[in-house]
Design a protein around this nucleic acid. Sequence first.
DNA 1: GGCACGATGTCAGTGGCTGTCATCAGCATA
DNA 2: TATGCTGATGACAGCCACTGACATCGTGCC
Lengths: 186, 186
Amino acid sequence: MGRWEPNARGRLEQAALELYGERGFEQTTVAEIAKRAGLTERTFFRHFADKREVLFAASGQLEDLLVRTVIEAPDSTAPIDAVAAALEAGGAALYHERARKRHTVIVANAELRERELVKLASLASALAEALRRRGVTDLAAQLTAEAGIAAFKVAFEHWVNEPDEKDLPQLIRESFDELKAVTAGK
Amino acid sequence: MGRWEPNARGRLEQAALELYGERGFEQTTVAEIAKRAGLTERTFFRHFADKREVLFAASGQLEDLLVRTVIEAPDSTAPIDAVAAALEAGGAALYHERARKRHTVIVANAELRERELVKLASLASALAEALRRRGVTDLAAQLTAEAGIAAFKVAFEHWVNEPDEKDLPQLIRESFDELKAVTAGK
DNA sequence: GGCACGATGTCAGTGGCTGTCATCAGCATA
DNA sequence: TATGCTGATGACAGCCACTGACATCGTGCC
């Protein structure tokens, strides 16, 4: 096991998810993660900014997908519906088992929940920016994006918590319908 | 300056806000804050769970105010309007100058922005719980609360960034109006 | 074979945060 | 007034996340 084993980053992600799941986030040291991946602590921090970030490596790709979907929506599509379509597409790209495992680790620790909020806020920012490029007002873009993320969040939580696996895009659609109802004063 | 000077907690808050403003959050050590307050580092951590929390001591009171306002709203009030009323009341309780100073410190640092998201999420949770006690469905309560917080967030940012001071509750009302418009597909 | 470059290892250091125990102010009570 | 109790603070040692600096190793290219 010399240096240069392939996919150091992926090995670190795998080792971290395992250890966080086995003994908890706080009870795991970065040195242990690195050791399981056959690397050193210093190398861990070359790949990830901090101990939490290793769980959120995929969020950048998700962001790209959302932005692309909003941009590619027909001009006639209302902003809220473009955001809904993007989040449904994002939801369709998630694997239930992996998402559930990861979510279990995250909800068990305050620092990880905190970081997840940052990632969701980042998604909202990206969605808002994409809407602005469609000519949507700044205010409307921010509100649409934030409200959309709220709908996604609620749907996602139901998805990972319900015993019988449902279709996430379908749950997202229902969540948006409910959002429209409550903001209409229902 | 023996022990037992009054209001240790308040002195720590004041010293922290000053130092974070003067030289930045990262460039300030907890030992320095404690020293300026005439205390030791260990005592700082007896009053605040971590270095960031010292800036968010007031958020608990704000949460109480929001919850109370939702609960006291007339039964006939729609959930979204009860939330709007609560956030307007919360907005009315903020002082522009102090809020601006604090917000400047927070936006300048990623860790502090992260913590602020946690506080906003906590407010959303509390609002949702208050709505549930009014008999609102779980799903509707979560969505209403989250969307309401989004409206507040947008209004608050405008308030602290606009050069001419506007009325925060008024901005919040306008933000809710816009929220209702965009979720209606406008 | 030699060389450039990027990935990794090694080491020392800073600072956030915690556990533990000693110490001290204030208060009650004998 | 002495004594004892309680809660806040100090002092100290220690863990670990994270960083900077420099050495070392692999790989590809000439």
